[in-house]
Design a protein around this nucleic acid. Structure first.
Length: 643
RNA sequence: GGCGGUGUAGCUCAGCCGGUAGAGCAGUCGGCUCAUAUCCGAUAAGUCGGGGGUUCAAGUCCCUCCACCGCUACCA
């Protein structure tokens, strides 16, 4: 039997499960169920990433061990997966003993081969946060990077660590991509990966001595294995690596890693390189989906617009959420989530079209035949047509699902469901029921409907498994494979009950606005918010060191070959000076000239794009970094000091 | 700045290798009654972002411009 191995990323336990996690996991679950219905033997893996400094610190802040913290969050993930009918074969945790052993084995193997070597890591270290800041962090005027978490200056630090020889895999990776152009889907993401690798790869630091909560490096217990080497390995350790007997040999290489776009590079560059270094086979495919946006913006904790699946689950069955997520967004693109859109989609397609079709069919079988078909049906060509149409539908839908175009596949299914509703109207079974001689025709119509419903149900089942089971139960037919379903000529059915109760939008919104105000639960915020930093207080003397004055813009122009920079010439009252500001995306030179602004006058000068900037313009900055330059009353004298 | 993508009816989007525009939702009108007031039919005059080109013929190919998005660089 062919096998199919699907994974989700392992989710970091510093975060509680939200709609984004649910989306990835549901997608992987749908793919797994779909392959199973096709006859594959499947393995579906999900789990949690539990190591690292953030966990260590969150746990310390709560006065518990990292493992206990992880245990708690893991429960939340498992609960949600259960509610959402996610059926995984293994839930792996990076703290699982077999994973730890597997990672160490992989590490040693690559070390022995020479692609891991000891060296020194230089990075910008934030003393108060006890961590390195990313290379992308912004720099202060004095040239040190600023910690994005606490806003303090970092210092350049050097520590001993191990490197992975990623640079050696540039060519092999490019060759691999060329030979497997479908490795990453959608194709646009594959292009991103290729262009990234073509720009050159640097060796990767893969251990830390500053992180205690992690997998120890074999024979060097001061070092722990850093995030990606540890986390990505889960895809093989979950199958028993380094043991190559049972699951590993059967399911590796993975058929599909499913993930969101933000971790593409780690999966499409680092992971294949690690595997090459260990002489292991590479995964066959990676499926990259976009983000769910709320109000056109990325959901984020700091913005407070994260969508909690539990709110939807109060009003809708899990199937509805699964259906919506698969139906609404084309794979790859970001999609906007709106409650209104959600309710409309579910009410129209699942309630009005699909559930109502089943309801009216079941209702007529009960009313006209008392739930038992006598087996005297007289068919017409129309019934054959419906069967033919279904077979065509099935082919198309399977093709769509094969290419992960779930939205298109479901759309196509809805088309067929419409066709069935139309069939009822055209056949007018209620008129047949009034005429005794048309009983065989009536039976044929209703029986054909049952067959079509059961058949369509197998296509929908991967997406909405729970209602699919109920439908099988209504019609006493249990087949799970694809194909035209036929329970026979003479059979009993049960009473049909409502599948997707209609949700009244007004009632929904009335309740939601209430609960949203009551929502923010204290426990969740302590876990995600960073601890208070009392050291962040400035004394009055420190404040006085900063000299802010009102200045007038004399001239402004865009700095050549930059997107964001404006060069401003300003009158400070005591001198005329030049400064550079990164506001060109939001302010035109014209609207700034003659305007009064506040600048920091005694800031150490910095050279930006070859221009010496003496000072800095003050502007409010929102969550997206968009600047807002305050309005200064026109009568304010130039040179006035802010205090 | 470099690379890539998107821009089609009020909204969300289909339109493969070129042949004179489609679906769903919303709206309007009408029909049925089996059904969770559900279903069915009719109804859309949208410069297919702007401009130019190739062609007998272009949302569909080429060039260019604009807007937005992604990756990346530079940078606040």
């Amino acid at each position: 039997m062919s096998t199919f191995y699907v994974t989700t990323p392992i989710y970091y336990v510093n975060d509680i499960p939200h709609i984004g996690h649910a989306y990835t996991t549901i997608m992987a679950d749908v793919i797994t169920r779909f392959r199973r219905a096709e006859g594959y033997e499947t393995f579906f893996l999900t789990g949690t990433d539990e190591h690292g400094q953030k966990i260590e610190k969150s746990a310390a802040a709560q006065g518990i061990t990292p493992k206990i913290l992880a245990d708690r969050v893991v429960e939340r993930f498992k609960n949600l997966w259960q509610i959402l009918d996610i059926r995984y074969d293994r839930f792996i945790r990076t703290t699982d003993a077999d994973h730890v052993a597997g990672v160490q084995h992989l590490f040693r193997r690559v070390l022995d081969k020479g692609d891991i070597y000891p060296g020194e890591y230089r990075g910008h270290y934030c003393v108060s946060c006890e961590g390195y800041v990313p290379e992308t962090a912004e720099k202060s005027q004095s040239g040190n990077k600023i910690c994005p978490d606490c806003g303090k200056e970092t210092e350049l630090l050097t520590e001993r660590c191990y490197f992975f020889r990623l640079s050696a895999y540039e060519e092999p990776l490019l060759r691999f991509y060329a030979e497997h152009p479908d490795f990453v889907q959608p194709a646009s993401r594959m292009n991103e990966v290729i262009s990234f690798v073509k720009m050159g790869l640097k060796d990767l630091s893969i251990t830390r001595s500053t992180v205690k909560w992690g997998v120890p490096v074999p024979d060097d217990p001061e070092q722990t294995i850093y995030v990606w080497f540890d986390a990505l390995s889960n895809y093989i350790t979950a199958l028993g690596y380094p043991e190559t007997t049972a699951d590993f040999s059967r399911f590796w290489p993975a058929d599909l890693h499913v993930m969101a776009k933000d971790i593409l590079r780690f999966h499409a560059v680092y992971w294949p390189a690690f595997l090459m270094a260990a002489d292991l086979e590479l995964p066959r495919g990676e499926l990259i989906h976009g983000w769910w946006l709320k109000d056109e913006r990325k959901m984020s904790k700091s913005r407070g617009n994260v969508l909690d699946p539990h709110i939807l689950l109060k009003h809708f069955p899990a199937d509805a959420i699964r259906y919506f997520l698969m139906r609404e967004a084309p794979i790859g693109a970001d999609a906007n989530f709106s409650h209104q859109g959600f309710i409309t989609r579910i009410n129209t397609e699942l309630t009005n079209d699909w559930a109502n079709l089943i309801s009216r069919t079941g209702g007529m079988i009960k009313r006209y035949f008392n739930n038992r078909f006598p087996g005297k049906a007289a068919y017409s060509p129309t019934e054959d047509e419906l069967r033919e149409d279904y077979l065509e539908l099935e082919n198309e839908v399977r093709a769509f699902f094969d290419s992960y175009a779930f939205n298109r596949g479901l759309e196509r299914i809805m088309e067929y469901i419409s066709r069935l509703n139309r069939y009822i109207v055209e056949a007018e079974p209620w008129k047949m029921a009034a005429d005794e001689s048309l009983q065989p025709r009536l039976e044929a119509v209703l029986k054909t409907l049952v067959r079509a419903i059961l058949s369509t149900n197998t296509l929908l089942a991967p997406v909405i498994p729970r209602s699919a089971d109920r439908i099988r139960a209504f019609f006493n037919h249990d087949s799970r494979t694809f194909g035209w379903k036929d329970p026979g000529e003479s059979f009993d059915v049960r009473d049909v009950e409502p599948l997707f109760p209609r949700v009244d939008p007004e009632a929904f919104f009335a309740e939601e606005t209430q609960s949203e105000h009551a929502e923010p639960s204290p426990k969740e915020t302590t876990m995600s918010e960073k601890p208070q930093t009392p050291e962040g207080i400035a004394t009055i003397d420190e404040f006085k060191k900063i000299r802010m004055v009102v200045a007038r813009v004399l001239a402004a122009e865009k700095v050549e070959k930059t997107d964001k920079l404006l060069r401003l010439t300003v009158d400070t009252g005591s001198d005329t000076r030049t400064l550079v500001a990164g506001i060109a995306q939001y302010y035109t030179p014209e609207e700034l000239v003659e305007r009064k602004i506040i600048i920091v006058a005694n800031l150490a000068p910095a050279v930006i794009r070859g221009i010496e900037s003496k000072g800095m313009i003050l502007a409010a900055s929102d969550k997206d970094g968009r600047p807002y330059i305050p309005i200064i009353p026109e009568e304010t004298p130039v040179g006035s000091i802010m205090r």
